[in-house]
Design a protein around this nucleic acid. Structure first.
Lengths: 203, 203, 203, 203
DNA sequence: TATGAATGAGCCTTCATTCAT
DNA sequence: CATGAATGAAGGCTCATTCAT
């Protein structure tokens, strides 16, 4: 994904990775604030201290930064979700842990989430975004399978499981638009409150 | 907002309004599909049959189209919401009617909603978008006041009303991303299922 | 090929075609002098009086200009060659007429020829240049068929017809590098001298 | 011409020369295939295994490589031509030997020749290319003087010696575009066939 | 000696908008 | 009213070259 092959010598490689990371983070922040299209390479240059040309040592294109942002968002989230879902806790526990991890991840990746949402029309439409699309779907699939398990063992019951899942996705995905780290409620508390709400009908 | 004063003779005025409407709708559709920035006046020209120059007879700028899209989305919604909230039905009824009207409106304005969501970073940031911002807040305020009324008269109870409202906003605002008119569930059914879910904890 | 559809109203269309022609000619001249890559759109802008942006009303890309130059070179040449070859003159006459027409065309399209030669590595390599490549081959094929006819009716004889054709192609294609219109020898005289030379062995 | 002074110790010097040679040859090949401007230092780096920075140990600039390619082409050719022309063979023999040597040299320097042809507009125009230009002219001068000698001693006669020379230059300079080493005809055979053709009118 | 980071100028192209006709 | 020509600013990206390490 970078323009040139990253260095192989460990010391240089470390510095390289660090700077690429800083670039991606700066991009996430600016893209979230101004929008992807409204952020120019010049803006990125100003924000990072790299020259416009120099940026291309750390990324092959502006769009590559977008992909990197999505990957940074989705890869660890998916990994955690898989880890949680593979334990032998109850579906109810699974769900609560998933939502907690999810909101915690969002809380620490707010710009990433905003960028991800903002770019939906590209991600969902362009063939070259299939990999990202797949990750999103895999995560949602894990959530759904937990709901299925809950229905199966009788611990949950939904009028319409599909609609319930969409409700859950909606409420959590909306969080980055108002959630402030260090706010009145921690991500975990929010997760708990929402899980209570979401599971309330099951008694 | 149009570039030149719209015609005043009724016949001409009707044709004018019709064309402006067609332009706004085409813009909503294209903006939703490709994104606002990725849609050029040329694309609009192709989609409407108007020439690039001709478009400026019906709008003063590309951004004006964006505002018009938001207004078309928010004005009737707000009007309906006010009408509903001003009846003397119960908070519970108010909420159910509001969500139903809201989802119906979304169903018939999916592109508008997608554009609205996609442009969040502009709407929430730029001073010149204050009017739109205010409408969004007014609508949310109506919803909140219904929840307050529900709490007051004891028909609803929330662990955290703020979080509950945000959950509601999230789930409904997410709908345009998956809702298909003519799908398995009507907007009204969805509204009912969700209201059941949302109000489940209150019994 | 132009960026936008050319106008359809006759008067405008005439002006449009005229300006596109002027642009192509200017491009041929500059490309021949400095090389295609070394000529910037800015140079073209300066040479034509159009702004850099305005150039794109008359062409869709810099490469489109290159294609147009090649077409302007090859299309009429091929047409003339076909006309000549389809008469029932003798092979010897055919050849003399062909070489004459060819050199006359070169004389009036020297920049085009220089550009064509200079861009060989692109034309012969890139798939998207196949159409141009085909025209070149069609012309050479006509020449060869005349030589074949000459051999068949005994009016010509070659040690190696393939090598003879390549010699002919070489000498004529080299002409644009030294030929000056209005020079000591007219294109027709040169054609005659060379045909004498080329056919000398046949007596 | 190299960037830094080449090493003086013999062993190092040998390695240095070898690498510079490999660089020039790689450059000739790539420039011929893709064009000089379309070949980047990065491409050269990839083709040679040198790093981008490392290339500048063996050349002072990209243009220096171009000059080196031309020199490698012209210097030995000119040397051979002078050697041949200074023997006391007949003009006819001189010519045949020259064309043979010339085509043999082309056959072993096809990329060089293609690059040379492709860069004509630079070589013939820029003052700093005068040295190369002079070598080309010197070679052509030798050819012409042989034709003059042939006319003088009556062994050759031309309708127009200038045009005859230009024909010869054209046909031979065109060879790199179709000649394949190891093809049906050896360079020497081609030289003989063409000399026959070229001298046919003289009997 | 060699590497990879960095530069900075330049290039092609797009596009919202204006305006004469 | 409507058209198409024209503008000019900006944008993403490439690349030959330099230089500290």
């Amino acid at each position: 994904m970078p323009a040139t092959n990253p260095p192989t010598r460990p010391a240089l490689r470390a510095r390289y990775d660090e700077r690429r990371q800083a670039l991606i983070d700066a991009a996430a922040k600016l893209f979230a604030e101004r929008g992807y299209e409204q952020t120019s390479i010049g803006d990125l240059s100003e924000a990072t201290g790299l020259t416009a040309g120099g940026i291309y040592h750390y990324t092959s294109s502006k769009e590559d930064l977008l992909i990197a942002i999505c990957d940074e968002l989705l890869d660890p989230l998916l990994e955690q979700a898989r880890a949680i879902a593979s334990t032998d806790a109850s579906p109810d526990d699974h769900l609560r842990q998933l939502v907690r991890a999810w909101l915690l991840h969002i809380e620490s990746h707010i710009p990433h989430m905003l960028v991800f949402a903002q770019t939906r029309h590209t991600i969902e439409r362009e063939p070259r975004w299939r990999a990202v699309r797949r990750k999103r779907k895999a995560f949602e699939q894990i959530l759904d399978s937990v709901l299925v398990a809950g229905e199966t063992d009788g611990s949950m019951s939904f009028e319409d499981r599909g609609l319930a899942l969409l409700a859950l996705l909606g409420m959590v995905n909306y969080a980055p638009q108002w959630l402030k780290p260090g706010g009145r409620r921690s991500a975990e508390e929010i997760a708990d409150v929402w899980c209570d709400l979401f599971l309330a009908g099951d008694e």
